[in-house]
Design a protein around this nucleic acid. Sequence first.
DNA 1: GATGAGCGG
Length: 82
Amino acid sequence: MKILVRNLSRSTGEEEIRRIFATYGQVQSCNLVLDKASGKSKGFGFVEMPVNGDAKQAIKNLNGMELGGKNIRVKMAEEKED
DNA sequence: GATGAGCGG
């Protein structure tokens, strides 16, 4: 399941996202979207987790948690994939 | 060189 993680701090890296998501389940892959102008984090990214139930649990648990001094927004991505 | 809402490559 593809998970959208936004409202991230610009100082937050993929490893940070991966470790907190790994707390509730296995992280298949984490992709932090980088900005083309600065080449740094755009402040949001995507995380893929199995739909075994860990994904939704990770979402509702990690949604609104503080990371890098900011409260991140975790939600399942609504793109083509089902 | 950085940008603060937002579903990228």
